[in-house]
Write a protein that binds this DNA or RNA. Sequence first.
DNA 1: AACACCGTTTCAGAGTGTGAAATGCATGGA
DNA 2: TCCATGCATTTCACACTCTGAAACGGTGTT
Lengths: 289, 289
Amino acid sequence: MGKDHLEKPKGVHRVASYQPVNSVLRSLDVLKVLNRYSVVSVNQIHQLTNLPKPTIVRLLETLIAAGYAVKDKNGRGYRVTSQVSELSCGFHGAPMAVEAGRPWSQKLTRELKWPAAIAVPDGNAVVVYDTTCGDSPMSPYHANIHKRLGLISMPLGRAYLAFCSPEEQRLTMQLLNSSTHPDSDLMNAPGLIEQLLSTSKTAQFSERVGGEANHVSSGVAVPIYDETRNKVLATIGITYYTTAVRRKEIVEIYVPRLQAAAAGIRETIIRLTSETGAAQANADHPVVL
Amino acid sequence: MGKDHLEKPKGVHRVASYQPVNSVLRSLDVLKVLNRYSVVSVNQIHQLTNLPKPTIVRLLETLIAAGYAVKDKNGRGYRVTSQVSELSCGFHGAPMAVEAGRPWSQKLTRELKWPAAIAVPDGNAVVVYDTTCGDSPMSPYHANIHKRLGLISMPLGRAYLAFCSPEEQRLTMQLLNSSTHPDSDLMNAPGLIEQLLSTSKTAQFSERVGGEANHVSSGVAVPIYDETRNKVLATIGITYYTTAVRRKEIVEIYVPRLQAAAAGIRETIIRLTSETGAAQANADHPVVL
DNA sequence: AACACCGTTTCAGAGTGTGAAATGCATGGA
DNA sequence: TCCATGCATTTCACACTCTGAAACGGTGTT
């Protein structure tokens, strides 16, 4: 397979360098089938996957050894155990927000040109899990992915702190007072904090006007709210050069666009969540016998 | 942490004839770690699993090829996708009822000696997914696991039909009228059906008195009700020789025991469900950075 | 610039997964 | 009762696939 001339990697993403591990792919197929039907026989799996039966039995025993499946009584079939939740319980918070939000932040950047970012609350800060600063032709910053942003000074942080539940806000404030974080230096001005939060709450978005400290950039952000859990799942915002945009434009165009994106993301998340939990209650039962 | 996958043989069950497939066990470990943390680096996985880094990258690429993971932007880490729900969405209905109910039906058989059974509604019948007839010293029948039982004549079936929601009952009755099923021959006596259902509903359990047809056995059953979804998840019942038990004993001892078991199973199911869905919202965030 | 760290790639070799064929093990019909 | 049938399971020799030490290359730090 050795090429003697240089081959350019495809686009930005490199081609996978490894061949996928065969047995792993097969085991995932088997586990998927196990999940589709309540109780499955080796033969059913064989028909659904075209895998040789010995292979199926071997993989099933492997899944059993790992605790994700059990053999039904008197060898009539196999089924999954409650432990399978370990394999999907992590699809919450950051991963869900990123997967649901990516198309929306890209759309924002296409339309407004400025970079957008999505951040997820994590203790005493928010963590940026996605930015479109690579897609934006004129990004004020280069790359702040995985950066922890302060909950007071940064719009993405404040959009969380101002709009989360009162109890959550109280606990987070305690955390802010008892640990070091990006905004630790602002903690001695309690009046300032309350003012910023209430201003955000009234205006329905949070804003940082640049030029104050040593920032040439400004930003606005709004929360992504899950109404079924009463929880701020993430925040989404855009950043721009302070001198390049008039405030009127921000309030009348940028903020509504952000709120529309947040609403769209919220709907996607609700859909993904309900699919994960319930769903297929009907599709699941094509009368297994 | 867990590295040696040496499994001890399990008690009465036969020892697994195959050696578990190594790469599969490892991939499941990796997927589990991916789920425990929002975004993970290869190094973090390495520290948590003790797997060699090339192996981790290979398995991650395999998971990516299968669609269960994606590489976070600019190579800073990996995370799961919404597709992981495929690997656990099946733990509902039958598997959950069986896993939660098994200890209770065994307890019933230990105490009352008669065999107990758990059945799950499936279209126009209920399917027996677990029985303790192997544990019972005096079982009237031999093995009816995976058998489809009628919703009218059998206590396990009637406990579902009588106690499910009115809308579900209406749809199921339509299904019973338009398909063949174990009780097809009873469908021409509509008065009988309504009477059986209302009697069950009043008495809070369903009962079949043997000797009527050609049965020497009788049975009682109760529904396992999920209050959060307003849904009968399964039914649990016991079977006995008609002539061996006085009716007083059934009403005063058997039925209360069954109802206690149903309540216990319901609680276990609620616990399992909430663990699967939410949970770990806090434990999940040991500040990943 | 030099260093340190980390993700990724390479590659040769051995251990491991593979699946056709054979063997059990039920159930059901004659 | 005794085969016939269908399915789950086991065996086993071989090919091949997975393995992981070592090397590489990129990025951020001193």
